[in-house]
Amino acid sequence: MSISGKVDPVVRSVAATDIAEALVEGLRDFQALPIYGLVFGALYAAGGITIVLCLTAFGMVYLAYPLAAGFALIGPFVAIGLYEVSRRRERGEAVSFGAIWSAVRSRNEIGWMAFVTLFVFVIWMYQVRLLIALLLGLHASFSSFQEFMTLVLTTNEGLTFLIIGNAVGAVLSVILFSLTVVSFPLLLDREVDFVTAMVTSVRAVVTSPLPMIGWAAVIVMLLIVSALPYFLGLIVTLPVLGHATWHLYRRLVEPLPA
């Protein structure tokens, strides 16, 4: 039972073929209604560009790499509008930006999940800054991203920073992925509390660990690669992954009885 007293969602196991099929269906949703995907993708990319410009203005351009890696963490939150597009298309309902906004705004528990997502992203960025202070110098500063990468790749301290930072980032990514891969679509689909949604999401990952780890790896790699050319690749990558996540959710969680 969930903390609200309702029956917990039933989780099903999935295979690698389900991941592939979800990706195909996600691409179809994007092709059918591209304007919504392009808008949400552009907003995501614009957010990344804005943050990088701010880092550059404050002389912290060396944080661009960890930002690009950590930016993938908030993807599930940004893609929530895309889940609603797929949900409405699946049901044959009219799709509009107003309808999407109304649906998202009506789910109060989504706000708590957004807080969890942003909290982990903040932790990611703070641990990067802490590692820089501990391993590269308390008052470390770099005039360019190239100077930062040269230090990271050519010194023992830099390589230690790279190894530990990526390891911590991987752990945070797995944790947040496990908490959100099902929770955001579930909160849109039915009335459950955010704790139940997170528990269901973790159960889905535990039930099908290898396929879900593979899905996480696909998401992270595509988002990072898409972020490299000034985040512009995210304009297409985010919507496809967002729609695909909805279809994967449909395979992972049994629908409510009619």
Results as ranks from 00 to 15, higher is better:
52 V>H: 03
197 A>W: 11
182 V>T: 06
113 M>W: 00
70 G>D: 01
118 L>T: 06
81 G>T: 02
141 S>N: 12
194 F>W: 15
226 S>L: 00
82 L>E: 01
196 T>K: 00
58 F>C: 05
184 F>P: 02
213 I>L: 14
215 W>Y: 10
66 P>G: 00
74 I>T: 02
25 E>K: 15
221 M>Y: 12
247 H>C: 08
111 G>P: 05
176 L>M: 14
199 V>Y: 04
227 A>M: 03
57 A>P: 04
16 A>K: 05
187 L>V: 10
183 S>M: 07
64 A>G: 01
3 I>M: 15
223 L>W: 09
198 M>L: 10
158 G>V: 13
54 C>K: 14
93 E>S: 15
122 V>W: 13
5 G>M: 08
83 Y>N: 10
228 L>H: 13
50 T>P: 08
23 L>C: 13
118 L>H: 10
24 V>I: 15
215 W>T: 00
59 G>M: 12
121 F>P: 04
106 S>F: 02
53 L>H: 15
210 L>Y: 06
75 G>Q: 07
226 S>R: 02
199 V>P: 03
73 L>Q: 03
207 T>H: 00
242 G>D: 12
218 V>F: 14
34 P>A: 06
236 V>M: 13
130 L>Q: 14
52 V>N: 03
101 W>Q: 01
258 A>P: 14
59 G>W: 08
143 S>C: 06
230 Y>R: 15
217 A>Q: 01
204 A>Y: 03
250 R>G: 09
170 A>D: 09
128 V>N: 09
145 F>Q: 09
231 F>K: 08
198 M>Q: 11
23 L>Y: 15
32 A>L: 07
208 S>P: 11
153 L>Q: 13
148 F>A: 12
149 M>V: 13
144 S>H: 11
165 G>K: 08
191 E>M: 10
43 L>R: 07
131 L>V: 15
145 F>H: 09
229 P>W: 08
125 M>D: 01
162 L>K: 09
203 R>W: 07
249 Y>W: 03
216 A>K: 01
98 G>I: 10
85 V>H: 02
68 A>N: 05
258 A>F: 14
237 T>H: 08
81 G>P: 01
51 I>H: 11
78 V>R: 05
236 V>I: 15
26 G>R: 09
210 L>D: 03
2 S>I: 13
58 F>Y: 06
41 G>A: 07
69 A>P: 01
87 R>K: 06
240 V>Y: 00
149 M>N: 09
10 V>L: 12
213 I>S: 04
28 R>V: 13
239 P>E: 02
201 S>W: 11
7 V>N: 14
90 E>R: 07
160 T>Y: 10
78 V>M: 08
215 W>F: 12
98 G>P: 05
109 E>C: 04
14 V>S: 03
204 A>C: 10
183 S>L: 04
13 S>L: 11
220 V>W: 01
34 P>R: 07
158 G>E: 13
118 L>N: 08
164 I>V: 14
213 I>E: 00
237 T>F: 04
146 Q>Y: 09
245 T>L: 07
149 M>R: 12
139 H>Q: 11
68 A>M: 14
163 I>H: 08
63 L>N: 05
145 F>D: 09
195 V>M: 11
53 L>V: 09
136 L>G: 04
104 V>Q: 09
169 G>M: 06
234 L>E: 06
172 L>A: 08
206 V>G: 01
